[in-house]
């Protein structure tokens, strides 16, 4: 799996690269618009992570360029400009997902996995982890071919764990993944344990 990371902030580039590398991805990076545009034009990637504000240009133009050349790469916008305008513009141009900075790397990871899954198999193929089989299309979970009933949040939590298996994931990352911005104001993370307990029981 090849990923192109377009990000101008060196430190962030380095960290994301390292994290994704640990996940087993082949990560290439570009720090400005011109390099990014070059790389996106020449090579094929499974997934492209693109920052919108770049030196010498806009990430939105790279998305435009990719769509014009019928690239098969999935595109995730990672932007510090958390504006709904940019988000809508980016998604309209053909980006698949939008992640506002600062984000948790586990969240980024799970978004990439979900995107690649949707791209490569049209979301129809099951995810198999040991005895667990998940069919994302139907949001169905089976353990040793026994169907398990999970709530929406429990299902999301399970997928998140599977995407980040063998990883240490912070409680904040989970809360944010499950509740998005609403998690901002949550004082305790006890409810995560409730879900975890339910999940373990099943």
């Amino acid at each position: 799996m090849k990923i192109l990371l377009i990000e101008d902030e060196a430190e962030l580039r380095k960290s994301i690269k390292q994290y994704l590398h640990q996940e087993g991805y082949l990560v290439e990076s570009a720090a400005d618009f011109i390099k990014a545009s070059e790389k996106a034009g020449v090579y094929d990637y499974d997934c492209i992570l693109v920052d919108i504000t770049l030196p010498k240009g806009s990430g939105l133009d790279i998305i435009k360029q990719l769509k014009e050349s019928n690239s098969k790469a999935g595109v995730i916008i990672i932007s510090a400009k958390n504006s709904s305008g940019d988000k809508i513009k980016g998604l309209d141009l053909g980006a698949d997902d939008y992640l506002a900075k600062p984000f948790d790397l586990a969240e980024l990871n799970s978004r990439i996995k979900a995107l690649i899954r949707r791209r490569n198999f049209d979301g129809s193929k099951a995810i198999v982890v040991n005895e667990i089989t998940i069919t994302p299309d139907e949001r169905q979970v089976k353990v040793n071919s026994d169907s398990v009933n999970l709530t929406a949040k429990e299902y999301d939590l399970l997928l998140f764990f599977i995407a980040n298996k063998n990883r240490v994931v912070s409680k904040n990352a989970i809360a944010e993944h499950l509740w998005g911005d609403d998690s901002d104001q949550m004082d305790s993370h006890d409810f995560i344990y409730v879900h975890l307990r339910n999940l373990r029981k099943n």
């Binding site: 902030e9 430190e11 962030l12 960290s15 994301i16 390292q18 994290y19 640990q22 510090a80 958390n82 900075k101 600062p102 984000f103 948790d104 790397l105 586990a106 990883r167 240490v168 912070s170 990352a173």
Partner: peptide, 17 residues
Amino acid sequence: LQTPIAVLKANVNLLMQ
């Protein structure tokens, strides 16, 4: 401030691993 926070967060995430 978003970017520095993002850098810090990413590094904490990495360190956790």
